[in-house]
Design a protein around this nucleic acid. Structure first.
Length: 617
RNA sequence: GGCCCCAUCGUCUAGGCAGGCCUAGGACACCGGGUUUUCAACCCGGCGACAGGGGUUCGAAUCCCCUUGGGGCUACCA
């Protein structure tokens, strides 16, 4: 069977329709190390799309063979995120299926059986190298500028040697013996044929010393046993594929169809990864002179530093000064600015340390790039400092008010397109148009602006009941006071915010109506510009008077009232609307003013006008 | 360093496999204008790319080679 003749749709159709029972089976196999991130979501989506397009099956398998990296809640989170995106699996955790269990940690007996098979056939052997020995070999290869290929012993260890090694406390692993001499060719649906020299592939570990199989082994066994026909995965796995094919040959397994997708890169270059968030925090800290005292005194003696801080300029020499100005990115030698930045930075450090968010030594390590705190700590720091972290995980986008429809649409178009110029597409349209042959080879940048545009478009076209559901879920997640509204009111709120780009914007523009009058936060700049400058306050008084006499509260009624008032005062509507807006919302950003007043109610509107008049007059 | 992948506007891409239909099309962003009660949304217009060099050919964005650039992998992680 040749796999590379006629890529994509035609080929795919020929295969399963002519053979009838040969259904396409794809899978998503995340390791539960945290939340589902967008790269993973894209991989899952492409697999799901192919399965749905061809009437095949999509399954979910949890690759939890690394005890050190697993986090207990990750699996549940990943499943929740997939479901939010609308990516449902036909087989896998919680839904079951004939090929279970779907957690690799529960399949150890299966792997052991196949390991034994390879061992008995002389296709794999035991090895007892320590981490230090392996490390030394790696370093040597590096200095000699060659690939690090494991050197197979002349005589393979026996079972007796295993006992002896165990007794000596040496780690026991099993390696696969790579004996191929011919080039290994991977037929890739996206890249065509890729050839690998077997001399470049060392004997790799298939069973770890803790008794768990490595990824390479587990993935091969499970894909076979679960009947996976098509493997769509990231390009980072392309180099692993010859290893997998070698194992498949040795075990007598079928070789699935492979498709290696391009990598999604971030603005800062490199793979879009969870590292982006710590990076953002680090950048903020560096820009704001957040440098722990310990790091400072390591550079400059404590006595001199204190002398400098307390105002003795000459306490520092030229070199130290240059060092500090560079450190704090202060231009020239502006001593006052330097002092200001230093104390502001130290103040932030104090808050973080006193708030027990992070210890000083951890902070030093983090800023010097020696270690990275866990994401929850990063999140706490970001929250404390008011840093907006870049969204990386699917759940981050949910919390920022994005629609799953927009995410799915955007992700699908990252490296794929329907070929007819369409961009905004529903899930159903994507399923109908998806085709492996139209998947790109080149890396693509995750363009947040474009995602925003997609979200704006999807807010416009998502049916109202669905949108209300999304909005309610969003409000609950961020614990918004707007969650008090019933569905009818939520629908009205969405309608009055026509043109909004995210659910977050809608929430931010309407929450003023759901907080008590004394909780309104007045934006200082808005107050100054709109109320206190010109005749803002006078207009506000006029508005109050007019509104007090209002008979019936409807947006239309308020509109004609305000328009008449503007005419009577011989000013544009803006001169009336803006002061009123600031008085009731606290900012210059709100839904259309007539709706805003209607939403808040006349009593509270009048009360807030009074409060504003009292405070800002 | 070694191995592998990739290369069209700032970004995502169409066109490439079947070379002339391409003075390279669309979308996002950006800039200018319009609409307007704020923020958005919306409407009109503009800027803007075949990485470089060699071939093959009557003809190359398209096929081949080299260079350059970007990315991935190089674990008892997946």
């Amino acid at each position: 069977m040749t796999f590379d003749e006629g890529r994509g749709k035609l080929f795919v159709f020929k295969k399963w329709s002519s053979e009838g029972f040969c259904m396409i089976v794809t899978r998503f196999a995340p390791s539960p190390t945290g939340y589902l991130h967008v790269g993973g979501a894209r991989t899952a989506l492409f697999n799901w799309l192919l399965a749905r397009r061809t009437g095949g099956k999509f399954l979910l398998r949890i690759e939890d063979t690394d005890m050190k990296r697993n986090t207990p809640t990750a699996m549940r989170q990943v499943m929740e995120d997939l479901r939010w995106l609308g990516i449902e699996w036909d087989e896998g955790p919680e839904v079951g299926g004939p090929h279970g269990p779907y957690l690799q940690s529960e399949r150890r007996a299966i792997y052991d059986k196949y390991i034994r098979q390879l061992l008995d056939a002389g296709k794999a052997y035991y090895s007892f190298d320590t981490a230090e020995e392996l490390d030394a070999a790696r370093k040597l290869a590096e200095t000699e500028k060659r690939s690090n290929i494991y050197r197979r012993p002349a005589v393979c260890p026996t079972e007796a040697d295993v006992e002896k090694a165990r007794a000596e406390g040496r780690p026991v692993t099993v390696r696969f013996a790579v004996t191929a001499t011919e080039p290994i060719v991977v037929h890739d649906e996206i890249r065509g044929d890729v050839s690998f020299d077997p001399a470049e592939i060392g004997d790799f570990i298939i069973l770890k010393s803790d008794g768990f199989p490595t990824y390479h082994f587990a993935v091969v066994v499970d894909d076979e046993l679960m009947g996976v026909t098509h493997v769509i995965r990231g390009q980072e796995h392309l180099m692993n594929t010859p290893n997998h094919q070698l194992l498949q040959r040795a075990l007598g397994f079928r070789i699935p169809t492979y498709a290696h997708m391009s990598v999604t890169v971030s603005e800062s270059g490199g793979k879009l990864s969870k590292r982006e968030q710590p990076k953002a925090v680090q950048k903020y800290m560096k820009e704001h002179g957040v440098i722990p005292y310990a790091a400072l005194t390591a550079k400059i003696g404590a006595d001199e530093l204190e002398a400098f801080r307390s105002g003795h300029n000459d306490a520092l020499n030229k070199v130290q000064m240059q060092d500090l100005t560079k450190f704090y990115s202060v231009k020239g030698s502006n001593v006052d600015e330097l002092r200001g930045k230093m104390s502001a930075g130290l103040e932030i450090v104090r808050q973080l340390v006193d708030g027990r968010i992070i210890t000083e030594s951890e902070l030093v390590d983090f800023l010097e790039g020696n270690s990275v705190p866990d994401i929850p700590i990063i999140e706490k720091i970001a929250e404390h400092l008011g840093i907006r972290l870049p969204e990386i995980n699917v759940v981050d986008f949910f919390r920022s008010g994005y629609l799953p429809e927009a995410m799915v649409n955007f992700l699908a178009l990252l490296g794929w397109n329907p070929g007819d110029g369409r961009e905004i597409m529903s899930r159903q349209e994507l399923v109908e148009a998806f085709d492996l042959s139209r998947v790109n080879k080149s890396n693509s940048l995750f363009d947040r602006d474009k995602l925003l545009a997609f979200n704006t478009e999807h807010i416009k076209r998502t049916p109202m009941p669905t949108l209300v559901g999304h909005f309610r879920r969003y409000l609950a997640a961020i614990e918004s006071p707007v969650a008090k509204a019933d569905d009818t009111l939520l629908e009205a709120i969405i309608r009055m915010n026509e043109g909004a780009r995210t659910l977050e914007q809608i929430e931010q523009k309407t929450r003023f109506a759901f907080v008590s009058n004394d909780q309104v936060r007045y934006d200082a700049e808005a107050v100054k510009k709109v109320l206190q400058k010109g005749d803002g306050l006078a207009m506000l008084r006029a508005v109050r008077e007019a509104l007090a006499g209002l008979q019936e509260l409807t947006p239309e009624g308020i509109e004609s009232l305000l328009r008449n008032l503007a005419q009577a005062q011989k000013v544009g509507l803006g001169k009336i609307a803006q002061p009123l807006r600031v008085a009731i919302c606290g900012t210059t950003i709100s839904p259309p003013i007539f709706n805003a007043v209607d939403l808040l109610g006349i009593d509270n509107t009048l009360k807030r006008i009074d409060i504003a008049l009292k405070h800002f007059a």
